[in-house]
Computed example of a mutant assay.
Amino acid sequence: MRISDMRLLDVVNIKDGRRLGPIKDLDLDLEKGVVKGMVVSGPARSSWGLFGGGKPEDFMIPWERVKKIGVDVILVDAHDLPEYHSENDDRR
């Protein structure tokens, strides 16, 4: 699969079924020729503005957390990553 094809897929957390956002970038180790992780746009942070749409924060998902790459989605295990916590996450 090409990187350009992967960017079209939704990234979904297998622990709660939540859509994490699109892949923005891949972290590559060019010396070893391996993918170290993927950068994903996280959930929007709430703001006190009129429309309540805070800017999403990017976070890294290590490649070993990728569980399955399917036709429509990439399934990842992101439940305990320190970078990923949504406003309604009760595991904090």
Rank of each mutant, 00 (worst) to 15 (best):
V35S: 04
L75C: 01
R19Y: 09
R92D: 14
N88I: 13
K55G: 01
V35N: 02
K36D: 02
V34E: 15
D29V: 02
P56I: 01
M6F: 06
G53T: 11
R7A: 10
I69M: 14
D89I: 02
G52W: 09
I14A: 06
L20T: 03
E57T: 09
D27T: 00
I14L: 15
V71H: 00
R7H: 08
D58K: 04
R7N: 08
E31M: 13
R2W: 05
V11M: 04
V73A: 03
V73M: 07
V76N: 00
V34P: 02
V39K: 08
G21S: 05
R91C: 08
I23Y: 01
V66A: 08
V66T: 11
P43G: 03
M6L: 15
V76G: 02
K55T: 12
P43N: 06
D80I: 12
I74S: 00
V12G: 00
G70Q: 10
G54F: 05
G49K: 03
D10L: 07
S46V: 11
V39H: 03
D90N: 11
V34Y: 13
V71S: 10
N13R: 09
V39A: 04
E57N: 06
R45T: 11
R65K: 14
V35A: 14
E64L: 08
L26G: 01
D80Y: 10
K32I: 06
P82R: 07
N88Q: 15
R2K: 14
V73G: 02
D10E: 13
R45H: 10
V12S: 05
G37A: 10
I3G: 01
W63G: 06
E57D: 14
V35Q: 02
D90I: 13
G17Y: 12
G54A: 07
L81E: 09
H85I: 15
S4N: 12
Y84D: 05
M6G: 00
P82Y: 06
L9E: 07
V12H: 00
D58Q: 10
L81K: 03
E64W: 07
D5V: 06
E83W: 02
